[in-house]
């Protein structure tokens, strides 16, 4: 916290969020812009490494394939991508219901296998709860009239979800995993 405040004294969180979002989409949309960011990033590296300090190992490129893999499993077993990609407005509730059952059934089973999900908060939703001082702000988010000092009294609106264990298939070799579902041609 302190370090961030010192290195970026003038940029607020909202400003940074907006910048991050716009940069994200511009990087995706424009290779020229992406190249500029790359140059900026690499220009920073030697600047940060002080001459008498050993060079930190470069962070490896993020492997996004597991994310694609999860999408692929949810499509394969629960037809999630098919469901979301279709225009739902022209269909009756009974059509939506039939499709939703397919999606729910398959995705539920796939999720159950891949990730052990547990509620963050064990109390029933709607109950009064106390949030102590020094609470973990990543697992509990305060909403409504957020002010005053801990402990906070409030009503549990959503229990939250925590991934306790994640089991994903290993990717063999250097497959890019970009095909979420192959086209099927019946012979």
């Amino acid at each position: 916290m302190l370090r961030r405040a010192v290195t970026n004294p003038n940029v607020s969180f909202i400003q940074r969020l907006a910048l991050a979002l716009s940069a994200f989409f511009r990087i995706l949309a424009s290779s020229t812009y992406a190249a500029r960011i790359l140059r900026l990033e690499s220009a920073q590296e030697p600047a940060r490494a002080a001459p008498d300090v050993t060079v930190q190992p470069e962070k490896p490129a993020r492997d996004l394939r597991p994310a694609l893999q999860v999408l692929s499993v949810l499509q394969h077993e629960g037809r999630l991508v098919d469901f979301v990609q279709q225009d739902i407005l022209t269909f009756s509730d009974s059509d939506v219901g039939a499709a939703a059952r397919v999606v729910h059934d398959g995705c539920r089973r796939a999720l159950k296998r891949m990730v052990k999900l547990v509620p963050v908060h064990d109390d029933a939703e709607g109950h009064s709860v106390t949030v102590p001082a020094g609470y973990d702000a990543t697992s509990i988010q305060l909403t409504g009239n957020v002010s005053g000092q801990a402990p906070f009294r409030g009503t549990l609106r959503h229990r939250g979800w925590r991934a306790q264990e994640l089991t994903l298939p290993d990717i063999i070799g250097d497959a890019d995993c970009l095909v979420i579902a192959p086209a099927e041609v019946e012979l």
Partner: peptide, 18 residues
Amino acid sequence: IPVAIAGRGSQLLGNSLR
């Protein structure tokens, strides 16, 4: 309990049998 199965194509809505 309801049992629903999907059609083969990518069009899920309207092609699922229940």
